[in-house]
Computed example of a mutant assay.
Amino acid sequence: MNNTHNKMDYIIQFCACANLRKAARSVTQAYERKMESTGLKVTQYYMLVNIARHDKISISNLGDVMLLDQSTVTRNVNVLKNRGYVNIAKDISDSRTKSVSITEIGLAKLEEATPIWLQIQGKIEKDIGQEKYQDLLETLKKLQEFVEPYDR
């Protein structure tokens, strides 16, 4: 029993997945509380940023960029479309592919939300410290690279 208890304590304390999920959830909630006035969830904001950056992007490529499954991307793109923030059109070169582009209303929403995003982002970077924050980003990138072989 003691050995099993020790293993469980170890798992709870050091599980990379659980600790990353808790941290991600906490950070997501902080961003969403601050961005509540915009009506955007942080995933929707990040999606709008990616759509604006790529001009026209397919739903599957958007999922690849954001590491989201197609159903999550489709659901969020439809919410953004219903609000008038994006257009969805069949790709000219491949009618099976849908391309997403940002509208003027979507660009205005980004203009509204970005200062709020910058405020919370700046606070996080300041509170952690620029050097530690850069180390965190580097560690997260390396972690993604290391775990990719486990996904297969």
Rank of each mutant, 00 (worst) to 15 (best):
L20P: 00
L20G: 06
R21T: 13
K22Y: 12
K22E: 09
K22P: 00
A23G: 04
A23V: 10
A24Y: 07
A24P: 00
R25D: 11
S26C: 08
V27E: 05
V27H: 02
V27Q: 07
T28W: 04
T28N: 09
T28R: 15
A30Y: 01
E32G: 01
E32A: 02
R33A: 09
R33H: 07
E36D: 11
E36T: 03
E36Q: 12
S37C: 10
S37D: 11
S37K: 12
T38Y: 01
L40H: 06
L40V: 07
L40Q: 04
T43M: 08
T43L: 12
Q44C: 02
Q44E: 15
Y45D: 01
Y45C: 00
Y46F: 08
M47F: 05
M47E: 06
L48R: 04
L48K: 03
L48M: 13
L48N: 08
N50R: 12
N50G: 05
N50P: 02
I51A: 08
A52M: 09
R53L: 11
R53E: 09
H54Q: 12
H54P: 01
D55W: 08
K56A: 09
K56D: 03
K56C: 00
I57M: 05
I57R: 09
S58T: 15
S58N: 03
I59Q: 15
S60M: 07
N61V: 01
L62N: 05
L62R: 03
L62P: 03
L62Q: 03
G63F: 07
D64Q: 11
D64H: 08
M66Q: 05
M66W: 06
L68F: 10
D69C: 01
D69Y: 08
D69N: 15
S71R: 13
S71M: 10
S71N: 09
T72Y: 08
T74S: 15
R75E: 10
R75M: 10
N76A: 07
V77M: 11
V77T: 13
N78V: 03
V79D: 09
L80I: 09
K81E: 10
N82S: 12
N82P: 01
N82A: 08
R83E: 09
R83K: 15
G84W: 08
V86H: 05
N87D: 05
I88W: 02
K90D: 02
D91V: 01
D91Y: 02
I92L: 06
S93A: 10
S93E: 13
D94P: 04
S95K: 15
R96W: 04
T97V: 15
T97N: 04
K98L: 12
K98G: 00
K98E: 15
K98T: 07
K98V: 04
S99D: 14
S99T: 13
S99H: 14
V100S: 06
V100G: 05
V100E: 07
